[in-house]
Simulated assay, not measured.
Amino acid sequence: MSVSELLGRVSTELNDIAAQVERLHPLVSAQSGQLAANDLHYAQALQSFDYIEQKLRCLAGYLDDLSAGAAPGWQIDPHAALAAITLSDLASRLSGQNSSSLSAAPSGDFELF
């Protein structure tokens, strides 16, 4: 696989995660009014939440720029590294497989924390 293609795929995944974090902002903000005013740790946690989104977007942009600058001939074998990805749909997207071609296996347990 070309290095440019792989970097682009990782960049896309990071942008998707950042968008998911951004969609959670209203949920977190709805609880923040009184708690943030009274609890310094809660206010810092809210700031950290926003900072995570910003970092994800910055890393995605960084990888996207690296992808654009990578020489077309640069190749990499991602299979060994993909073995460490425990989320099958993520591994599928990073490897270039169509997610719809995956079997409809159960995705795992749901755990509230």
Rank of each mutant, 00 (worst) to 15 (best):
W74P: 00
A81S: 12
Q47V: 14
K55C: 11
L46R: 13
L82T: 07
C58V: 13
K55G: 07
F49Q: 09
L46Y: 11
L56T: 03
H79E: 15
Q47A: 15
I52E: 06
P72E: 13
L66Q: 07
L56R: 01
L56C: 03
I52W: 13
S48Q: 11
F49L: 15
A71W: 11
L40T: 13
A68N: 05
G73K: 08
Q54P: 01
Y42D: 11
L56P: 04
P72G: 05
Y51P: 01
H79N: 10
L63Y: 08
Q75I: 03
D77W: 06
P72D: 13
G61C: 11
Q75T: 07
Q54C: 02
D50P: 03
A45K: 04
P72H: 10
I76L: 15
A70P: 04
D64E: 12
D50L: 08
K55T: 07
L59P: 00
C58T: 15
E53R: 12
I52L: 14
R57K: 13
Q54A: 15
D50V: 11
G61T: 09
A83S: 11
Y42P: 05
L66R: 06
L59C: 13
A83K: 07
Q75F: 07
S67C: 05
L46K: 07
Q75S: 14
L66H: 02
Q47T: 03
L59D: 14
D77E: 14
G73Q: 13
D39R: 05
A83F: 00
A83M: 03
Q54M: 02
G69E: 12
A71I: 01
Q44I: 11
L56V: 05
A81V: 01
K55N: 10
L82G: 10
D64A: 14
H41L: 15
S67Q: 02
D64W: 08
A71T: 01
H79G: 02
P72W: 13
Y51K: 13
C58F: 15
W74Y: 10
S48V: 02
H41P: 02
L59T: 12
D65S: 11
Q54H: 08
F49I: 05
G69P: 01
D77S: 12
Y51E: 12
G69Y: 00
S67T: 01
D39G: 01
I52M: 11
L63N: 03
I76H: 08
P78A: 14
P72S: 10
H41V: 12
A70T: 12
I76Q: 06
I76Y: 10
D77N: 15
Q47H: 13
L59W: 15
I76M: 12
H41N: 15
R57E: 05
L66T: 01
S48P: 00
D39K: 02
